[in-house]
Protein backbone atom coordinates (compact mmCIF):
# COMPACT_ATOMS: atom_id res chain seq x y z
CA UNK A 1 0.00 0.00 0.00
CA UNK A 2 1.21 3.51 -0.77
CA UNK A 3 1.30 5.83 2.22
CA UNK A 4 1.53 9.48 3.16
CA UNK A 5 4.72 9.34 5.18
CA UNK A 6 7.63 11.49 6.18
CA UNK A 7 10.03 9.68 8.47
CA UNK A 8 8.17 6.62 9.83
CA UNK A 9 9.71 7.28 13.25
CA UNK A 10 7.85 10.59 13.42
CA UNK A 11 4.43 9.30 12.47
CA UNK A 12 2.91 9.37 15.95
CA UNK A 13 4.19 12.83 16.81
CA UNK A 14 2.94 14.14 13.47
CA UNK A 15 -0.44 12.47 13.94
CA UNK A 16 -0.87 14.07 17.35
CA UNK A 17 0.30 17.46 16.06
CA UNK A 18 -2.17 17.42 13.20
CA UNK A 19 -4.97 16.15 15.40
CA UNK A 20 -4.50 18.89 17.98
CA UNK A 21 -4.40 21.53 15.23
CA UNK A 22 -7.52 20.20 13.54
CA UNK A 23 -9.58 19.90 16.72
CA UNK A 24 -8.28 22.82 18.77
CA UNK A 25 -11.83 23.78 19.69
CA UNK A 26 -12.04 20.58 21.74
CA UNK A 27 -8.51 19.46 22.59
CA UNK A 28 -5.04 20.72 23.39
CA UNK A 29 -1.61 19.18 23.86
CA UNK A 30 -0.34 18.89 27.43
CA UNK A 31 2.36 21.52 27.95
CA UNK A 32 4.35 18.93 29.91
CA UNK A 33 4.17 15.90 27.64
CA UNK A 34 3.88 15.75 23.85
CA UNK A 35 2.22 12.34 24.20
CA UNK A 36 -0.73 13.55 26.28
CA UNK A 37 -3.83 15.07 24.68
CA UNK A 38 -6.13 16.98 27.04
CA UNK A 39 -9.70 18.18 26.65
CA UNK A 40 -10.17 21.95 26.47
CA UNK A 41 -12.77 21.56 29.19
CA UNK A 42 -10.49 19.75 31.67
CA UNK A 43 -9.61 19.82 34.47
CA UNK A 44 -12.77 20.84 36.31
CA UNK A 45 -12.55 21.44 40.01
CA UNK A 46 -14.52 18.90 42.01
CA UNK A 47 -15.19 16.64 39.03
CA UNK A 48 -13.82 13.17 38.46
CA UNK A 49 -11.30 13.15 35.61
CA UNK A 50 -11.53 10.52 32.89
CA UNK A 51 -8.26 9.21 31.44
CA UNK A 52 -7.55 6.56 28.85
CA UNK A 53 -4.63 5.64 26.69
CA UNK A 54 -3.40 3.13 24.21
CA UNK A 55 -1.27 2.56 21.19
CA UNK A 56 -1.61 4.75 18.10
CA UNK A 57 -2.94 3.51 14.78
CA UNK A 58 -6.53 3.10 16.01
CA UNK A 59 -7.69 6.62 15.16
CA UNK A 60 -10.10 8.10 15.93
CA UNK A 61 -9.40 5.99 19.07
CA UNK A 62 -7.99 6.87 21.49
CA UNK A 63 -7.30 10.61 21.10
CA UNK A 64 -10.53 11.19 19.17
CA UNK A 65 -12.68 10.63 22.23
CA UNK A 66 -11.09 13.51 24.12
CA UNK A 67 -13.59 16.31 24.52
CA UNK A 68 -16.55 17.63 26.46
CA UNK A 69 -18.22 15.18 28.89
CA UNK A 70 -16.18 12.32 27.46
CA UNK A 71 -12.51 11.51 27.97
CA UNK A 72 -10.52 14.30 29.65
CA UNK A 73 -7.02 13.16 28.73
CA UNK A 74 -5.42 10.47 26.61
CA UNK A 75 -1.94 8.98 26.93
CA UNK A 76 -0.61 8.31 23.43
CA UNK A 77 1.59 5.30 22.67
CA UNK A 78 3.67 4.30 19.67
CA UNK A 79 1.80 2.48 16.89
CA UNK A 80 0.06 -0.49 18.51
CA UNK A 81 2.13 -0.09 21.65
CA UNK A 82 1.13 0.96 25.15
CA UNK A 83 1.89 4.52 26.24
CA UNK A 84 4.57 4.92 28.88
CA UNK A 85 3.75 4.92 32.58
CA UNK A 86 4.97 8.52 32.55
CA UNK A 87 2.41 9.50 29.92
CA UNK A 88 -0.43 7.83 31.82
CA UNK A 89 0.78 9.61 34.95
CA UNK A 90 1.00 12.98 33.20
CA UNK A 91 -2.52 12.45 31.80
CA UNK A 92 -3.82 11.70 35.31
CA UNK A 93 -2.16 14.84 36.69
CA UNK A 94 -3.49 16.96 33.82
CA UNK A 95 -7.14 16.22 34.63
CA UNK A 96 -7.11 15.92 38.39
CA UNK A 97 -9.72 18.28 39.80
CA UNK A 98 -9.48 17.01 43.34
CA UNK A 99 -12.24 14.41 43.02
CA UNK A 100 -10.06 11.59 41.75
CA UNK A 101 -9.33 10.17 38.32
CA UNK A 102 -10.87 7.14 36.58
CA UNK A 103 -8.49 5.42 34.17
CA UNK A 104 -10.66 3.46 31.72
CA UNK A 105 -8.48 1.36 29.42
CA UNK A 106 -8.24 -1.93 27.54
CA UNK A 107 -6.93 -5.26 28.74
CA UNK A 108 -3.44 -5.54 27.25
CA UNK A 109 -0.28 -6.62 29.07
CA UNK A 110 1.57 -3.37 28.41
CA UNK A 111 -1.31 -1.10 29.37
CA UNK A 112 -1.88 -3.09 32.56
CA UNK A 113 1.74 -2.64 33.59
CA UNK A 114 2.03 1.01 32.63
CA UNK A 115 -1.25 1.99 34.29
CA UNK A 116 -0.22 0.08 37.41
CA UNK A 117 3.01 2.07 37.58
CA UNK A 118 1.25 5.37 36.80
CA UNK A 119 -1.26 4.69 39.54
CA UNK A 120 1.59 4.20 42.01
CA UNK A 121 3.14 7.51 40.94
CA UNK A 122 -0.22 9.30 41.25
CA UNK A 123 -0.69 7.91 44.73
CA UNK A 124 2.55 9.61 45.75
CA UNK A 125 1.06 12.87 44.43
CA UNK A 126 -2.03 12.31 46.56
CA UNK A 127 -4.33 11.72 43.57
CA UNK A 128 -7.03 9.10 44.04
CA UNK A 129 -7.01 6.80 41.00
CA UNK A 130 -9.23 3.86 40.19
CA UNK A 131 -9.45 1.81 37.01
CA UNK A 132 -11.82 -0.13 34.79
CA UNK A 133 -10.24 -2.61 32.38
CA UNK A 134 -12.24 -3.25 29.22
CA UNK A 135 -12.59 -6.88 28.18
CA UNK A 136 -15.39 -7.00 25.63
CA UNK A 137 -13.75 -9.07 22.87
CA UNK A 138 -15.67 -12.34 22.92
CA UNK A 139 -13.27 -14.47 20.86
CA UNK A 140 -10.15 -13.63 22.85
CA UNK A 141 -10.99 -15.97 25.77
CA UNK A 142 -13.92 -18.07 26.99
CA UNK A 143 -16.62 -16.35 29.04
CA UNK A 144 -15.46 -18.16 32.18
CA UNK A 145 -12.10 -16.39 31.79
CA UNK A 146 -13.50 -13.00 30.93
CA UNK A 147 -10.68 -11.25 32.78
CA UNK A 148 -8.36 -12.50 30.01
CA UNK A 149 -10.36 -10.97 27.17
CA UNK A 150 -9.04 -8.03 25.18
CA UNK A 151 -10.66 -4.63 25.24
CA UNK A 152 -11.86 -3.45 21.83
CA UNK A 153 -14.54 -1.07 20.53
CA UNK A 154 -16.67 -1.54 23.66
CA UNK A 155 -14.17 0.87 25.19
CA UNK A 156 -15.96 3.69 23.37
CA UNK A 157 -19.19 2.92 25.22
CA UNK A 158 -17.22 2.62 28.47
CA UNK A 159 -15.72 6.09 27.93
CA UNK A 160 -19.07 7.58 26.92
CA UNK A 161 -20.82 6.22 29.99
CA UNK A 162 -17.96 7.04 32.37
CA UNK A 163 -17.61 10.56 30.94
CA UNK A 164 -21.33 11.25 31.23
CA UNK A 165 -21.40 9.95 34.79
CA UNK A 166 -18.47 12.18 35.75
CA UNK A 167 -20.23 15.14 34.11
CA UNK A 168 -23.24 14.53 36.35
CA UNK A 169 -21.03 15.27 39.35
CA UNK A 170 -20.82 11.68 40.52
CA UNK A 171 -18.09 10.47 42.88
CA UNK A 172 -15.12 8.37 41.75
CA UNK A 173 -16.70 5.08 42.94
CA UNK A 174 -19.93 6.00 41.11
CA UNK A 175 -18.07 6.80 37.89
CA UNK A 176 -16.10 3.55 38.15
CA UNK A 177 -19.34 1.65 38.83
CA UNK A 178 -21.06 3.08 35.75
CA UNK A 179 -18.07 2.47 33.47
CA UNK A 180 -17.72 -1.06 34.80
CA UNK A 181 -21.41 -1.71 34.18
CA UNK A 182 -21.04 -0.39 30.64
CA UNK A 183 -18.16 -2.70 29.77
CA UNK A 184 -19.73 -5.66 31.57
CA UNK A 185 -22.74 -5.13 29.31
CA UNK A 186 -20.64 -5.04 26.13
CA UNK A 187 -19.72 -7.89 23.82
CA UNK A 188 -17.63 -7.43 20.66
CA UNK A 189 -16.27 -9.40 17.74
CA UNK A 190 -13.92 -8.49 14.92
CA UNK A 191 -13.76 -10.04 11.47
CA UNK A 192 -10.62 -9.51 9.43
CA UNK A 193 -10.39 -9.73 5.64
CA UNK A 194 -6.92 -8.28 5.20
CA UNK A 195 -3.85 -7.57 7.38
CA UNK A 196 -2.15 -4.32 8.25
CA UNK A 197 1.44 -3.16 8.18
CA UNK A 198 3.34 -1.10 10.71
CA UNK A 199 5.15 1.46 8.49
CA UNK A 200 8.43 0.94 10.36
CA UNK A 201 8.21 -2.83 9.89
CA UNK A 202 7.27 -2.53 6.26
CA UNK A 203 5.46 -5.80 5.62
CA UNK A 204 2.09 -7.19 6.79
CA UNK A 205 2.39 -8.84 10.20
CA UNK A 206 0.20 -11.75 9.11
CA UNK A 207 -1.51 -13.00 5.98
CA UNK A 208 -5.11 -13.69 5.12
CA UNK A 209 -5.43 -15.84 2.06
CA UNK A 210 -7.75 -14.65 -0.70
CA UNK A 211 -11.23 -16.01 -0.14
CA UNK A 212 -10.73 -16.40 3.62
CA UNK A 213 -11.77 -14.42 6.68
CA UNK A 214 -10.51 -14.47 10.26
CA UNK A 215 -13.20 -14.50 12.90
CA UNK A 216 -12.23 -12.98 16.22
CA UNK A 217 -9.34 -10.97 14.86
CA UNK A 218 -7.65 -8.58 17.31
CA UNK A 219 -7.19 -4.86 17.04
CA UNK A 220 -3.46 -5.14 16.49
CA UNK A 221 -3.47 -7.73 13.76
CA UNK A 222 -3.50 -10.52 16.32
CA UNK A 223 -4.56 -13.42 14.15
CA UNK A 224 -8.15 -14.52 14.60
CA UNK A 225 -9.29 -17.57 16.48
CA UNK A 226 -10.84 -19.19 13.41
CA UNK A 227 -10.12 -18.94 9.71
CA UNK A 228 -13.05 -19.68 7.44
CA UNK A 229 -14.12 -19.20 3.86
CA UNK A 230 -15.35 -15.67 3.27
CA UNK A 231 -19.11 -15.70 2.77
CA UNK A 232 -21.65 -13.06 1.71
CA UNK A 233 -22.00 -9.91 3.81
CA UNK A 234 -25.32 -11.17 5.18
CA UNK A 235 -23.84 -14.49 6.23
CA UNK A 236 -20.88 -12.75 7.89
CA UNK A 237 -23.26 -10.37 9.70
CA UNK A 238 -25.32 -13.35 10.88
CA UNK A 239 -22.19 -15.05 12.23
CA UNK A 240 -21.06 -11.88 14.03
CA UNK A 241 -24.45 -11.40 15.69
CA UNK A 242 -24.60 -15.06 16.66
CA UNK A 243 -21.15 -15.06 18.29
CA UNK A 244 -21.82 -11.83 20.18
CA UNK A 245 -25.32 -12.68 21.41
CA UNK A 246 -24.63 -16.35 22.20
CA UNK A 247 -22.05 -15.04 24.68
CA UNK A 248 -24.59 -12.72 26.30
CA UNK A 249 -27.73 -14.14 27.82
CA UNK A 250 -30.06 -11.18 27.34
CA UNK A 251 -33.74 -11.29 28.29
CA UNK A 252 -36.30 -10.81 25.53
CA UNK A 253 -37.01 -7.16 24.86
CA UNK A 254 -33.63 -5.89 26.12
CA UNK A 255 -32.69 -2.60 24.52
CA UNK A 256 -29.16 -2.43 23.12
CA UNK A 257 -26.72 0.07 21.71
CA UNK A 258 -24.93 -1.24 18.62
CA UNK A 259 -21.61 -0.08 17.25
CA UNK A 260 -20.27 -1.28 13.90
CA UNK A 261 -16.76 -0.02 13.20
CA UNK A 262 -14.51 -0.44 10.23
CA UNK A 263 -10.94 -1.59 10.89
CA UNK A 264 -9.40 1.03 8.64
CA UNK A 265 -9.52 -0.03 5.00
CA UNK A 266 -13.05 -1.32 4.63
CA UNK A 267 -15.20 1.16 2.70
CA UNK A 268 -17.85 2.78 4.88
CA UNK A 269 -20.63 1.68 2.55
CA UNK A 270 -19.82 -1.95 3.35
CA UNK A 271 -20.31 -1.14 7.03
CA UNK A 272 -23.85 -0.07 6.20
CA UNK A 273 -24.36 -3.28 4.22
CA UNK A 274 -23.38 -5.20 7.34
CA UNK A 275 -25.44 -2.98 9.63
CA UNK A 276 -28.62 -3.44 7.64
CA UNK A 277 -28.48 -7.16 8.29
CA UNK A 278 -27.07 -6.89 11.81
CA UNK A 279 -30.00 -4.82 13.09
CA UNK A 280 -32.50 -7.19 11.51
CA UNK A 281 -30.76 -10.18 13.10
CA UNK A 282 -30.54 -8.53 16.52
CA UNK A 283 -34.24 -7.70 16.43
CA UNK A 284 -35.07 -11.20 15.19
CA UNK A 285 -33.52 -12.45 18.44
CA UNK A 286 -36.02 -10.43 20.45
CA UNK A 287 -33.82 -7.45 21.26
CA UNK A 288 -34.47 -3.81 20.43
CA UNK A 289 -31.86 -1.52 18.94
CA UNK A 290 -32.05 1.69 20.95
CA UNK A 291 -29.17 3.55 19.33
CA UNK A 292 -26.83 2.47 16.53
CA UNK A 293 -23.41 3.85 15.62
CA UNK A 294 -21.86 2.97 12.25
CA UNK A 295 -18.52 4.24 10.95
CA UNK A 296 -14.78 4.15 11.53
CA UNK A 297 -14.81 4.47 15.32
CA UNK A 298 -11.91 2.22 16.26
CA UNK A 299 -9.54 1.23 13.46
CA UNK A 300 -6.36 -0.80 13.07
CA UNK A 301 -4.25 1.06 10.53
CA UNK A 302 -5.35 -0.28 7.12
CA UNK A 303 -6.78 -3.59 8.22
CA UNK A 304 -9.69 -4.74 6.10
CA UNK A 305 -12.56 -5.82 8.28
CA UNK A 306 -15.16 -4.72 10.78
CA UNK A 307 -16.12 -5.06 14.41
CA UNK A 308 -19.52 -5.38 16.04
CA UNK A 309 -20.17 -4.27 19.63
CA UNK A 310 -23.49 -4.74 21.41
CA UNK A 311 -24.12 -3.08 24.78
CA UNK A 312 -27.18 -4.08 26.80
CA UNK A 313 -28.89 -1.01 28.22
CA UNK A 314 -30.92 -0.10 31.27
CA UNK A 315 -32.46 3.28 32.07
CA UNK A 316 -29.26 4.62 33.61
CA UNK A 317 -27.08 3.57 30.66
CA UNK A 318 -29.60 4.96 28.16
CA UNK A 319 -29.58 8.35 29.87
CA UNK A 320 -25.77 8.39 30.08
CA UNK A 321 -25.40 7.28 26.47
CA UNK A 322 -27.65 10.11 25.31
CA UNK A 323 -26.09 12.73 27.60
CA UNK A 324 -24.59 15.70 25.76
CA UNK A 325 -20.99 15.08 24.72
CA UNK A 326 -18.67 16.38 22.03
CA UNK A 327 -15.40 14.93 20.76
CA UNK A 328 -13.79 14.56 17.33
CA UNK A 329 -14.79 10.88 17.27
CA UNK A 330 -18.26 10.99 18.80
CA UNK A 331 -20.86 13.64 19.48
CA UNK A 332 -24.20 13.00 21.14
Amino acid sequence: MQRFLNNPDDIVDETVAGFVRAHRDLVRLSPDNARVVVSQSAPQQGRVGIVTGGGSGHEPAFIGYTGRNLVDAVAVGELFSSPTAKSFHDAICAVDGGAGVAVLYGNYAGDNMNVKMARKMAKKDGIDVDTVVANDDVCSAPLAEREKRRGVAGEIFMWKIGGAKAASGASLPEVIGAAQKAIDNCRSIGVGLGPCTLPQVGHPNFEIEPGKMELGIGHHGEPGMRVEDLRTANEVADEMVKIVLDDHDLPDGTEVAVLVSGLGATPVNELYVLYDRIEQQIEARGLKVYRPFVGNYFTSLEMVGATLTVMALDDELKALLDHDAASPGLTT
Binding site: G77, S81, S82, T84, A85, K86, A109, G110, M117
Partner: peptide
Protein backbone atom coordinates in the same frame (compact mmCIF):
# COMPACT_ATOMS: atom_id res chain seq x y z
CA UNK B 1 12.57 2.63 28.42
CA UNK B 2 10.20 3.83 31.13
CA UNK B 3 9.68 7.41 29.95
CA UNK B 4 9.91 7.12 26.18
CA UNK B 5 9.13 3.60 25.01
CA UNK B 6 6.13 2.16 26.81
CA UNK B 7 4.60 -1.00 25.39
CA UNK B 8 5.14 -3.98 27.65
CA UNK B 9 8.89 -4.18 27.13
CA UNK B 10 9.33 -0.58 28.34
CA UNK B 11 8.15 -1.27 31.88
CA UNK B 12 9.53 -4.83 32.01
Amino acid sequence: LMAEIGGSMGPL
